[in-house]
Design a protein around this nucleic acid. Sequence first.
DNA 1: GCCAACGTTGGC
DNA 2: GCCAACGTTGGC
Length: 139
Amino acid sequence: MAYWLFKSEPSTWSWDDQVAKGEAGEEWDGVRNYQARNVMREMKVGDRGFFYHSQSEKAVVGIVEVIAESHPDSTTDDDRWDCVDIKAVKPVERPVTLAEIKADPRLSEMVLVKNTRLSVQPVTDAEWAAICGMAGIDP
DNA sequence: GCCAACGTTGGC
DNA sequence: GCCAACGTTGGC
């Protein structure tokens, strides 16, 4: 299984919004960036991801699961843009902030740190385990 | 609110 | 195909 990170501005689409969708989940639509789209095309059903709040909060706040592989983004007619569907799995016990991630040498190579503007990112097994530990949840 | 980083667009 | 201009994102 692979791991990912989904970044969202809470004022646009928050963890609470995602949780409210329940088991049905929701399209991760609106991505208009080729790199992020290509990352989503790599995803498989059952893969897990971190849900990260950008802007004011800047923290990993929950765990999501991919429930549908890449398909056309329903919010545009432009066939360049695809997206996956995800559902909320569980919240973290404790948010892991960007400051904590930056301060941890194990996470110094994270895309979140290296390429701050990429909104959908791959996460390595080691990074996944480290952040789950910091968040107080089982990997 | 500002600014740096970076991706995209469009003219040539 | 290059590159300048522009727009957007996200951290501070």
